[in-house]
Amino acid sequence: MAIDTMEQKLRPPEIPLKPYPPKVITLASGEKMVVREAKREEVGALLGTIYPLIGVPADFYDIVAVRMYSEILGWYRHRVANEFVLVGAIDGEIAGIVTSRHVTPKLGMSLHTLTIKRGLRVGAQLFAAKMEHHLDILGEEEVYIVAESPNGFKRWMIEYELEDRSPQFPEVRHELGGVPTYVLTRSLWEAVRDVKCTGTRPVSDTDLKASAKLSMPREYPQIPGFKR
């Protein structure tokens, strides 16, 4: 597709990223969640999934949803460099989404984790997959991470025992503003990988096919009474 000159000037320079190999995780319920990279053409299902949560203040879903919405829109419309989006889908229905960005060959910038299906550690699995992509697939040495909710702080900062680099502000600063910056280093990752990160590869053709077409959640535990 031809891209006009002005649009070319507006787009960020991109570094080609290695693809994230899909995996499948059997959740406690017995449901199989395929974790894979989202494709650009799936933006409609992704944004449609996020949109209803913009109005949910509990657990800071509103902030996470509105920021993730803009991140995915920016990714789709080429306004963010080297972003990747991973999605967790159960029978194709989106259970959670994570966004992140490759900054340099040594540094990753974790953006957001949004869980729709609650109580099955979907968010924890997707966050771990995101770190796996940064450190094991893309080969970065560390990832900057912030939390915007108490749940996030517990899951990431405490459970991963992340390194607190906030005293080094403003030299060390996450892109999401002046919030305290924590870091997952390679050595920290290697200490927790086996108990945090799982999944089976390769994914069977049946499971891949089931997740090939993403669908928006029919219900949201965060929005009682919501029906799509």
């Binding site: 959740l27 017995g30 099955l120 799982t198 089976t200």
Partner: peptide
């Protein structure tokens, strides 16, 4: 919600899922 023995004990991902 129900849970399955495969997911929380027997399966390859059980150590992390549970």
């Amino acid at each position: 919600a129900e849970c399955t023995i495969e997911a929380i004990a027997d399966g390859p991902e059980a150590n992390v899922v549970n």
